[in-house]
Write a protein that binds this DNA or RNA. Structure first.
Lengths: 189, 189
DNA sequence: CCCCAGTGGAACAGTGATGTTCCGAAAATG
DNA sequence: CATTTTCGGAACATCACTGTTCCACTGGGG
């Protein structure tokens, strides 16, 4: 059963469990294994077959999550074009990761998960991008780069929150975020 | 024991439990009753004497929380002076409520708590303030008022996060927030 | 078509949190 | 100082979740 070659069936259910766990846990941070199993349309036993302990599932989610962020970052091509435009691109990419990122935000249960502490390649790329923008003169140098990344994440969070509370469409919320972010990085004369 | 007149002793330990619960739960959202009791320097039994069930404690925290927000809002005197300055004042007041508000943000366990859904007087006052600023010409009318309040909360959250991650002082973080907020509400020419 | 990897469900023990009761000790109150 | 109130701790029953084992089934690949 734990053969080296992923049979296809195994890989499929593994993904199903991972996806279901992600969505279940972003809706309810206290979801039990049984809840996740139900969400995945799978027996609770099966989950334990793939992830012996809850922590195993959580760290699998963790890496899966980092991978998706990584992919989104690459797709934004941070090195191309003016820095402010690249920043908007990466925001748009990240905006699509709502379930993934809401989970990351609202689940401090993963505090013990080793893998957050060390800087991601995405983190570094983002900081480099902002640095580049400051030198280019397209991003306000009056605010620390680390602060601007915080603000970017916050604005994304606000956008998702805005679609929940208000009856705003996702598109409208994203537009608001980008508009606000543009004002934030604008250079004061 | 449940006499009508608050004896002083009862009121005192009640506050102690409430405060300890607040700080314990903001540090660790999954804190057990035993944890909270320990944090309050009080027996677990005593907590159940004041708050028979966990949900009772949570809703007590909820109202206590709303009260503190209410007080902070009043102290900001939203009706006085230019709207943009009033907005900065209320930010400064809210910034002091770090434990209270971080708890509110990071504890979706209070989602079931009835009392968030209906608009607070503070919410309304804040929206009125922004509306006033738009008419005055001190706050950008290009962004919906509801969105600006979301952004304000997010910036506060960013500030607290910034003091955690970076080695920034609270004062510096607040300054960053205010500076960024000023740019956000600035009217585009 | 047949077989077996993959699955679901029942059943079980272990664990930690919750809520309750009871009683002796401590402290506030008059 | 005496009395009433309040507190702490031990003990207990209950509950939900976890992780494990075992067995019966099923459906897709060889």
């Amino acid at each position: 059963m734990d053969s080296v070659a992923p049979n296809g069936a195994r890989a499929r259910t593994r993904r199903a469990i991972l996806d279901a766990a992600l969505s279940a846990l972003s809706k309810n941070a206290a979801a039990s294994m049984a809840d996740i199993a139900a969400a995945a349309g799978v027996g609770r036993t099966t989950i334990h077959r793939y992830f012996p302990e809850r922590s195993d599932l959580l760290s699998a989610i963790g890496t899966h999550l980092l991978e998706r962020i990584e992919v989104a970052t690459v797709r934004a091509r941070l090195d191309e074009g003016p820095a402010d435009e690249a920043l908007e691109r990466v925001c748009q990419e990240y905006f699509e990761l709502e379930d993934v990122l809401l989970f990351a935000f609202e689940n401090p249960q993963m505090t013990d998960w080793t893998g957050w502490d060390d800087e991601t390649e995405s983190d570094r790329a983002l900081l480099r991008l902002i640095e580049r923008g400051r030198e280019e003169g397209t991003i306000d140098a009056g605010q620390p780069a680390a602060w601007l990344t915080e603000v970017m994440w916050s604005l994304l969070y606000s956008a998702w929150q805005h679609t929940r509370g208000q009856h705003a469409s996702k598109h409208a919320a994203l537009e608001l975020s980008l508009r606000t972010l543009r004002k934030v990085i604008k250079i004061e004369r």
